[in-house]
Design a protein around this nucleic acid. Sequence first.
DNA 1: TATTGTTATACTCTATAACTATA
DNA 2: TATAGTTATAGAGTATAACAATA
Lengths: 168, 168
Amino acid sequence: MAENTAADASTAATPATATPGSPSHPSDPPRPDLAAMVVPLGRTLMAAEQPILDAHGLTMWGYVVLLHLDEKPIRTQAALAEAVRADKTRIIPVLDDLEARGLLRRQPDPEDRRARLLSLTAEGRHLRDATQAAIQEGEEHLLARLPAADREGFLRGLRTLHDLSGQP
Amino acid sequence: MAENTAADASTAATPATATPGSPSHPSDPPRPDLAAMVVPLGRTLMAAEQPILDAHGLTMWGYVVLLHLDEKPIRTQAALAEAVRADKTRIIPVLDDLEARGLLRRQPDPEDRRARLLSLTAEGRHLRDATQAAIQEGEEHLLARLPAADREGFLRGLRTLHDLSGQP
DNA sequence: TATTGTTATACTCTATAACTATA
DNA sequence: TATAGTTATAGAGTATAACAATA
C-alpha cells in the first residue's frame, strides 16, 4: 500500500481530478499543472469540433487555414505555415484541396513569381463563417456551465496567455 | 464584452458580404475559437515543460504516469492507461523504464496474478515532487503576467472545464 | 547563390493484431 | 472462454532532404 507520508506534501499535493462521481473540493490551493489541464481540454475541444468540421466538409488543417487567411491575405505559403505553426510542406495538400474546391485562390505574385498570393474566395469566406458560427455555438454551450464571474476572467486570461505564447 | 485593443480588429474583420440570412444573431464573435487558443497554449506549456523534464530525466509520459500513480495506487495497467488517456500498449515501455530505475513497483496481485499492482517508490515520489515543483514554478512565472482579477477566474474556469471534459 | 514552392523519403508516434499467462 | 499484460506489426501524422522554378 502506498505510504501517504504527510511530510512530502510540501507544496505539491496532487489533485485527484477526473475521478468521476466525486465532486472535488478545491478548498486547498494545490492545483494540477496548467499543462495537465490545458492539453486535455484542448483535446476535448478538438474532439467536439470534429463532427462540425465533418459536417462542413473541412479538415482541421483546412479550417485553420481558412481562419488565418480570412484575417488578412497572406503573401507566401511559408508565412501562412508559420502563422498556423505548421511545417511548410504540411499545408501544401491542404491548399491543393481548398483551391480545387474553389475556397481559396493561389496566384503567382506578378512581382515575384516564386511566391503565391493566397486569398479567400467568397465561397471560402462563407464556409469559414458558417463553420466558425457552429463551432462557437458549441463552445458557448460549454462556457455556459461556468459561473458568470469566472467566465469573464477565464476568457480574458486565456486570451492573454495565448497572445503571450506567441512572443516569449 | 469589453471593447478590446485595435489588434482585435484583424480577427473581427469579417466582411461577411451582407450575409442576408439571419442577423438575429448579432453575436458576431470577436473572440477566437476556444480550441484555437487552448490548443496552442497547451503546446507552449508542453514546450516549456520539456527542458524541466529533461533536467529531471523524465519523459512526458513518464511524468504523467508518476503524477497519476501518486494520487492513489492503481490495480491494473489498463486502468492507468485509461486514466492518462493512453492506449494500454503505449505505457508499457514507460513502465518498464520507470520500474528499472526504481521509481515504481510493478507486483503481481496475489489475488489475481494476471494483474500488476502499481505503486510509487519513495524515489519516484520524490522525483515527482521535485519535477512538479519546478514545472509549477515556471507556470507561476507565466501566470504572474495575468491581472490578479483575471488570474483567479482563469484558474477556476480552467479547472471547471477540465473537470467537465471528463464526463460529458 | 538564395528563395519559394513542390515532391519524395524517413522518422516518430500511435493504434491494431497476435501471443503468453493466468483465471 | 475471458482477461491482463506483452510483443510485433502496420498505420497516420509529421518533419527532413532533395528537386525545380524564379530571382
